[in-house]
């Protein structure tokens, strides 16, 4: 589904990603872990097409297309979804109107008619139940005054509505208490099928207790320095990132 080859990217002339290689297949859950500043969020942003990041080398293929050549909105329409670490507050734009516009813009991209009001409401109700989100939240302006947990739940609700092929969860656990993590993770798990995939970007192992990965990769200094199964995450939790740092630095010197 996603094939990243030797991806190098940076911002304002500063290189952050120094050659990422990663392949994700349908039905899989991958986790990317790493210490602060290792490039986790940059990778998520580059994949979603955030401006200001400059890709200097490498390629990203998504469902047979050159992802890097697509605008952010086209990437979303092709089935890529980024759950933001810090969802943006937009006063004055109702959450429902925002999601309705998104759903219909994606339908337009695929040459389909916009959803009529009745079908849209039906879909909303169904997905609301799935991710356990309240109607009152959705009639409020987008993320304005939402608690950390509400913002993240809203991200997962958007994911449910847009039905992406690949969902990237960028530090979805940051700022959440255990209950909120459980609710958000349940939502993600319910949305998993054999046809879609999830990439979890996280600093801590705890989220992976709830969204269990098939593969764990450790990002350090812009490279994936270690890959393994979910046990690797437990090892990191136990030993901290220092042992990764030491191993990687030794390797680099050699």
């Amino acid at each position: 589904m996603l094939n990243i080859q030797n991806l190098q990217a940076g911002i304002e002339g500063r290189q952050i990603l120094r050659g990422i290689n990663l392949e994700i297949k349908a039905g899989e859950v991958h986790a990317i872990m790493g210490p602060n500043g290792s490039g986790k969020s940059t990778l998520a942003s580059v994949l979603a097409g955030k401006q200001n990041y400059e890709v200097t080398s490498g390629s990203v293929e998504f469902l047979g297309k050159n992802l890097l050549a697509l605008s952010p909105e086209a990437r979303a329409a092709e089935g890529l979804f980024l759950a933001f670490q810090y969802p943006v507050e937009v006063p004055g734009l109702s959450t429902t109107n925002f999601i309705k516009t998104a759903v219909n813009e994606i339908r337009k991209y695929h040459g389909r008619e916009p959803l009529d009001a009745v079908s849209f409401l039906k879909m909303m109700k169904q997905k609301m139940a799935l991710v356990n989100i309240d109607q009152s939240l959705l009639s409020r302006p987008l993320n304005e005054g939402f608690s950390g947990g509400e913002k993240k739940r809203n991200e997962i609700f958007q994911m449910a509505m847009l039905e992406p092929k690949l969902a990237i969860l960028d530090e979805t656990d940051s700022g959440l208490d255990i209950d909120a993590i459980r609710i958000v993770s349940n939502g993600v798990n319910k949305l998993r099928t054999k046809d879609n995939a999830v990439l979890v970007v996280t600093h801590y192992q705890r989220l992976l207790d709830y969204i269990v990965p098939d593969f764990v990769h450790v990002l350090y200094n812009g490279r994936i320095v270690k890959s393994g199964t979910k046990e690797l995450a437990l090892e990191l939790e136990e030993r901290g990132y220092d042992f990764i740092r030491n191993e990687a630095d030794v390797e680099q010197e050699a």
Partner: peptide, 24 residues
């Protein structure tokens, strides 16, 4: 970028943001 990342085209995203600004 947030709006675009949800599949909303740039032109539409700008419109929505200005409308949101004006709605106040």
């Amino acid at each position: 970028f947030y709006l675009q990342s949800r599949g909303i085209g740039q032109k539409m995203a700008r419109s929505l943001l200005i409308q949101a600004f004006a709605s106040d």
